[in-house]
Every structure is written in C-alpha cells, then in structure tokens.
C-alpha cells in the first residue's frame, strides 16, 4: 500500500494519505506533510514531544492533528519524522512525535506550509483501511 500521494491543486497542495489502520493513516499523513517542508532523510529523530488532542469528529481530529504538528514545528522550529500513538480513537489521540530542530547546514529544506484548510477535507474507511485527504495553504 502506498503511504501517501500528492493532490494537485492550482495554487496549493494536498496530501492523500492511506493506512491499514487509523494509526498508519495519521502517521503517513504527517510524514507527507513534513516531506513538503523538508527531505526527511536528512532529519534525525533526536527530540521527542507528546501531543494530546481531542475533537468532536474524526475529520476534526485529522485536521487538528495536522494543525498541531504545524504549530509545534513553527514555534519550536522543528521537523518531525516519527509518530507513535499511545492512544488513537476517532475522537482523541495521544502521540509521541520525534524529530530534530531545524539545522540549515544539515537539513534539505523545501517550503513553508502555511495552514491546513477544510476545503475538500475527507477521512474515509475503505476496503483496505483508511484514506484521508487534506489541502494545505502554501
């Protein structure tokens, strides 16, 4: 199974992520988003942080997950590449996220992701598992 693919959009860009389980979906989506920002092969998972999120629906949780990761990345100047879930239901999650502080010499940086939009947002169960779609403002 493919982990994610890009959704073509005229001005911005989206990620269509796949997963056999919700954990895999959330992980692949996060990897997809950080791959827009940097070449993750150049990033080492040296620092860890814990996130706890609660939302009213699965779609809201999916958006909140991306939003929280972007917020942490922006404020802490971090790039994350590993995502481990202690809890993940359709309404809440507790995750450990691992990554590294941005290092201009070491990391191959790409572009800033401004924000997560609700435009054409989807999280659906499929025969193989889950698919999630989200479009970012670039």
């Amino acid at each position: 199974m493919k982990s994610y693919e890009l959704i073509d959009h005229t001005a911005d860009v989206g990620i269509r992520a796949f997963g056999r389980t919700l954990e895999e979906l959330f992980k692949n989506a996060a990897v997809g988003m950080f791959e827009l920002m940097a070449d993750l092969e150049t990033v080492d998972p040296t620092a860890e942080k814990t996130l706890t999120l609660i939302a009213e629906t699965l779609e809201d949780l999916y958006v909140l997950w991306h939003q929280e990761l972007l917020f942490r990345a922006s404020v802490d100047r971090m790039l994350y590449k590993e995502f481990l879930f202690d809890t993940l239901t359709e309404r809440n999650l507790k995750a450990r996220i691992r990554g590294e502080g941005i290092n201009f010499e070491k990391h191959h940086l790409k572009k800033e992701v401004k924000a997560v939009t609700y435009h054409e947002l989807k999280v659906q169960k499929t025969k193989e598992g889950w698919v999630g779609e989200v479009i970012f403002d670039i």
Partner: peptide, 9 residues
C-alpha cells in the same frame, strides 16, 4: 482567478 480553498483566489 484560480482554484483556492473556499473562495477562489
């Protein structure tokens, strides 16, 4: 104009 999110750009 082109495709945006919500409003068109």
């Amino acid at each position: 104009m082109h495709w945006g999110y919500g409003f068109c750009i």
